[in-house]
Amino acid sequence: MADATTRPLPHPHRTLRHTLRAALPGSAWVVLPLALSALVFLYPLALVLHEALTGGGAGLDTGPALRVLGAHIFRTALTNTLRIALASTLGCLVIGFALAVVLSYVPFPGRSLALRLIETFIALPTFLVTLAFTFLYGSAGIVNETLMQATGAALPPLDFLYSSWGVILAEVTVYTPFVLRPLMAAFSTLDRAQIEVAASLGARAPMIVRRILLPAALPALMAGGSLCLLLTVNEFGIVLFIGAKGVITLPLLVYSKAIQEFDYPTACVVASANLVLSVGLYALYRAMVGRMGGGHADLV
C-alpha cells in the first residue's frame, strides 16, 4: 500500500476487555427491562388477578368474582363500554377515512396545517376535548346559548353531552388521529398513477374511492380500527370528565369501586375482566398490524 513503512495496526479484539465484550451476547441487555417489568408490571398485575380469583381470601374462590360479574352494575358497565367503543370506532373509521382521502388527494391551502392540528391531538390529554365540549355544547355552552337567544327557548335545546353520545363524540375526536395516521401512510405508498389511470378510463371520484382507495386502505383501516377499539375500551379521562350519572364504563367502575368505595376486591374483579377484554383486543390489533405487513405494533 501507499507506505509500507508504517507499522501494522494492532489487531482489534486483542485486549481482554474486547474478548469479554465479544463473548457477552447482545441479548444480555434484556435483563434490566425484564427485571423492571417483572417488578412493577407483572407482579402487581398478578396480584390483581389473584385477588380477583380468591376474593381476598386464602384459597381459590370464584364465588365473589362471579357475584360481581353477575351484578347489574357490572353488566351495565360492560354493555356501555362495548357500545361506546364500537360506536366511537365506527365514527373514527368513517371520519378518519374521509379526512385521509381529502388530505391525501384533494390539495388545498392549509392542508399541512390541518394535518398538524389533528395530529397534535395524539400528544394531548384526552379530557381536554371533554372540557372544551362543556363550553361548546354544555347546557350553558356557546351553542345552546346562541340557540336559546335565537329561538327564545327556555331550556337548552341541545342536550346530548351528558350521555353516551357526548362520550362518543369526544372519543371520535380524540381517536380519529390514530386512524388517520396509518391511513395517510397507506395512501402515501399508493401509486398516484393508479388514480390517474382510473380517471382516464372514465371512473368518477366515488368509484375511485370505492374500487381503488378503499381496498388500498383496508389493512390500515383494520389496524387503526382495532387500535381504536382497544383505546376506547380503556378510555377513562373522557368518561370521568363528562361525569354523567348514567354513563359508567369498566375503567370508571374500577375507579369508583376502589377510590370512592374502597372496595378493592370488587375493583380487582372488574379490573381483571377489563384486562381480559383489553388483552383480547390487543391481540386483535397485533394480528391486524401483522396483516398490514408492519413489523412492530407500537401504539401512538
Partner: peptide, 10 residues
C-alpha cells in the same frame, strides 16, 4: 453476526 460470530471470535 453480533451473536454467534462474536462468540466465535476468541
Amino acid at each position: 453476526t453480533t451473536g454467534e460470530g462474536a462468540v466465535a471470535a476468541p
